[in-house]
Amino acid sequence: MNAPLRVPRDFDSGQEVRWCPGCGDYAILRAVQKTLAGLDADPSNTVFVSGIGCAARLPYYLATYGFHTIHGRAPAIATGLKLANPDLDVWLVTGDGDGLSIGAGHLLHLLRRNVNCQVLLFNNEAYGLTKGQYSPTSRIGTVTPSSPAGSVGDPVSACRFALGSGAKFVARGIDTRIAELQTTLSAAHAFAGTAFVEILQNCIVYNDGVFSDFTERSVAAERQIHLTHGEPLRFGPDLNRGLILDRNAFALRAVPVGPDGVPEEDVLVHDQSNRGLATLLATMEGPDLPLALGVLFAETGSIFEAEVRGQVEARGDLPLPDLLRRTSTWKVSP
């Protein structure tokens, strides 16, 4: 008989959780614990590496190995860790400030190198631990203590940043849809390479309701599309709407499907191996287009640490005394 599978509780470190009551991070933590249990992950071989910020506290709450590092640098630390031991199952936890502002330069390189790990970027469009300043994903006009007249400058899109950086797995989840997030996290884990997951997360203190445009129960079906590879891109209460490619605008358009709209076969089918489609999906936001959730893009490629290790192996191995003599030498006799 097989040993019983692990349960989410097995991944609870027992450390008192110190996020604000009602924070979306609680739901994400639960989703992560459930995902790990579902994967029957070995806590001894699992490492969560984080930077700084509210999201970065996550490793303390998980009964795995954990390294809470410095602001923005978790991707570099995870890269070194994987170079030292490619067999570890590494998850990286970051936020919109940590990953897309102070640490964007590292995240870009982690993604393009395709280090085999999962990246969870909690995006709440705000700086939480430092008390509510605007972040690089805040929408224009966000009023905060450091932007009393409203923030200026376009926000960065996390998924488009990842796609532009050459990420080979890009997905999006949201703290209000835990079951779907678990599925996405499992897919990220199954992917060989850097799996990037943006998780939209509500900050109840500094940015409450920032995602309510598409999370309110009354509008959720209309304003979200749930992606499945090989399935038509349909959404709405009765899947009565679909996405088509407007060839003139080279953009996606949401249209009614069925007798009063376009024929079913004209609706685009999700192909997660299509980077162009993924970019269009990542770009969608309201009010005319739904928010894309699930796996936007997945394409296998060579894995950084395996390539590096392969080169080291191929270089060969000479005993040090021989290495020292790979040049002109001379002998002094007694």
């Binding site: 590496v49 390294f67 590092t69 410095i70 640098r73 991707p75 570099a76 630390i77 995870a78 890269t79 070194g80 860790l81 994987k82 170079l83 030292a84 031991n85 570890l88 330069g105 590292h106 870009l108 390189h109």
Partner: peptide, 18 residues
């Protein structure tokens, strides 16, 4: 590494990894 900070941090990550 991608920069000096990344180099220092990767080295720390490597030491963490044994």
């Amino acid at each position: 590494a991608e920069d000096e900070i990344g180099a220092a941090c990767a080295a720390i990550g490597a030491s963490y990894g044994g």
